[in-house]
Design a protein around this nucleic acid. Sequence first.
DNA 1: CTGTTAGCGCTTTCAT
DNA 2: ATGAAAGCGCTAACAG
Lengths: 350, 350
Amino acid sequence: MAQKIDPLDAGAGTPAAAALPTVKDVAELAGVSPMTVSRTLSGGKNVRAEVQERVQAAIATLGYHRNENARSMRPGHTTGLIGVAITNLGNPYYGTFALGVEEVAAEHGRRIILGNTGEEPARERQIISDFVGRQVEGLIVVPTGGSAEHLRAGRLGNIPLVLAARTVQGLDADTVLLDDVLGAYEGTKRVLATGHTRVGFLGNLVSVSTAQRRYEGFVRALAEYGIEPDPALIKRGQQDVAAARLAMQSLLDLDDPPTAVFSANNRNTIGALQAIGSRRGGATTPPTLVGFDDVELADLMGVPIILVSHDPKELGAAAARMLFDRLENPGDTREARLLELPVVVGDLAN
Amino acid sequence: MAQKIDPLDAGAGTPAAAALPTVKDVAELAGVSPMTVSRTLSGGKNVRAEVQERVQAAIATLGYHRNENARSMRPGHTTGLIGVAITNLGNPYYGTFALGVEEVAAEHGRRIILGNTGEEPARERQIISDFVGRQVEGLIVVPTGGSAEHLRAGRLGNIPLVLAARTVQGLDADTVLLDDVLGAYEGTKRVLATGHTRVGFLGNLVSVSTAQRRYEGFVRALAEYGIEPDPALIKRGQQDVAAARLAMQSLLDLDDPPTAVFSANNRNTIGALQAIGSRRGGATTPPTLVGFDDVELADLMGVPIILVSHDPKELGAAAARMLFDRLENPGDTREARLLELPVVVGDLAN
DNA sequence: CTGTTAGCGCTTTCAT
DNA sequence: ATGAAAGCGCTAACAG
C-alpha cells in the first residue's frame, strides 16, 4: 500500500522478502563476536588464523554478503555509487555512452546506477532525487532540456554533477559537450563546397541544446555561401527513427527536393536512410547526406553520405573523468568547466 | 588504502565527501523533533499543516533528501533495487535489453543498478557479489557462460535470479531465452529451400549457450536437406564486429565460397555486411545472408538478407516480469521456469 | 498532534 | 587477540 502517489517514489519502502544473514548470524555460527567477523572481513588483522577459518566457513555456509548499505552509513564511508541519468537507453548511442562511464567508474572502484529519463523532465527530476537519496557520490546527467531547478548544486546537497552531451539553460555546472557547432559547420561546408545549394535539415527536439548548436553550425556554413536557410527544407523536432523517416519522406516529396540533407543526430540519419532506401530504384538520384553521429553500416548503403562522427564511449569516459576529478579534489572551488570534444568529419562514402 | 586487492571490491568504504543534511538537521531548523520531519516526509499524517510548512521550508533551504539507504535498513523495508548484469552495454542489443528491464522495473517502483561484465566471468562474479551486498531485491543476469558456482541460490542469499538470453550449464534457475534453435532452423531452411547447398556459418563464442543453440538449429536444417556441415565454411568464436568481418572475408576468399551464410548474432551480421560491402562492385554476386537478431538498416543495404528478429526490449521486459512474479509470491516454491520467446523469420530483402 | 525510545547492520573506539 | 558499547539516519511502537 503506502503512498500510491508515484511508482518511482516507492523505491525503498516495500515489503521485505527473505532476511539475509548478518554479521551476527555469522558470529553466532562461528562462535565469536560480530567484531571478529567484521575484522576477518576487512583483512583479518588481529584475528587468529584458525578463527578466521571458522568465520570463513560460517560465511560460506550461510551465503553471507556484507551489507554495503549499512556499511556506507558509518561516518567517513560512501556508497561507491555514481548515478547516471540518460535520455534513451534504447539508442545505441547512449548505451555506449553509459559503457564509457561504467568503465571509468570501475577503474575508480565505483558502480553506476542507471536511470532512463525518456526525454521527460518529470522523470528526470524523480530519478535525480532518487539518486541523491541513495547517496550517490556523483551524478552524470544527459539533461532532457527542461527546467534546471532540480539540478542546482544546493538542491543536490552539493553532490558533484557533470552534464554530458547537452547543456541546460542557466545552469552553471561542469559539462562535457561535443564540438557541435564546428562539426555541423564543417560537415555542411563539405557539401556546399561540391556545389549543392539546396540543403535540407533534419533535427531533433528544438529544446535540446545539441539541436540548437548543430543548427547553428548548419546555418553558419550556409551563410558563408550566401545561402538563406529555406524553411521548406528545415524539419526539426523528430525524436525517433519513425518521425525522422516521415520528415525525410516529405522532403523527398517536394517538387524541388533538396540535393543534400544535413541530419542532426543518428536517429534522423537512420530515418533518412530508410526513406531513401524505400524508394530505391526510382529515377531520381538520392540526395547527399551529412549526418551527425556515427551510424553502423551507413557508409555501406550506396547512398552518398558524410558522417560527422565521434565515439560516445569517449564522451561518457570524459564526463566520468571530469566527475572523478571533482571527487578527488574535495575542497576545490574551481568554477564550472566546459569541455568540448572534437568530432571527425569523415569522407564522402558512395 | 584498505585492501588494494580489487578495485571493484572497494565499492563502499571510500573517504567521505560532504556531509548531507539529515532529518536531525531539518528538525532542528524547523524547531521540531526528527519524528515530525519523518511523518511530514511520509504523507504528513498527524502533523499540523502549519508545522508541515515549516518542515518543508527547512527541507528546501537545506536541500535535504531522505537517506534511502538508512531507510531501507529498517525492518520490513527493501532497497527497491534490481541488479542487472549484462555482457556488453556497447552492443545496442543489450542497451535495449536493459531498457526493457528498466521500464518494467519502473512500473514496479524499482530502480536498476547496472553492471557490465564484458564477457568476463571474473567480473561477473564481482558484480553479482557487489549487487547482493547492496541488498538488491532481485537479479537479472545475462551470464558470461563461465562457471555457475557464484549463481547458486545459496550463494545469493536466496535473492531471486533470472537468467536472460543464455543458460548456464548445471544451474537450475528461472530463465528467459529466445527460441534460438527454431529460429536458426527456420532461417537456414529458408535459404536451403531456394536451392543453396553451400551455406557458411558465422558464430560467437562457443561457450555461450546461444552459440550452441543457434548452431544446432543450423545443423538440423542442413540435415533435413541431407547436407553435412562443411568445416571449411564454419567460422565460430567471433565476439565483435572486427573479428566477424575478418571471418566473413576469409569465407569470401575461398576458391569455392558459400552462396549463403548464416550469422548467429548481430555482431556477426554487421561484420559480414562490412566484408561484403568492402568488395561491392566485384564481378561475383554476394552470398545471401541469414542473420539472427535485428540489425538497423541491414535490409536496405542491397545485399540479399533474411533476418531472424525479435525485440531485445521484450526479452528484458519478460525477464523482469518473471523476476517480479517471484518477488510478489515470496513463499512460493515452484521450480525454476523456462520461457522461450518466439522469433520472427523475416522475408528476403533485396 | 508530538516526542522518546529503540534498533535495523555495521565498524570505530575503547576496554580487557 | 577479542569483546562491549556507541552511533551512522531512519522510523515503528509506544508514551503523552
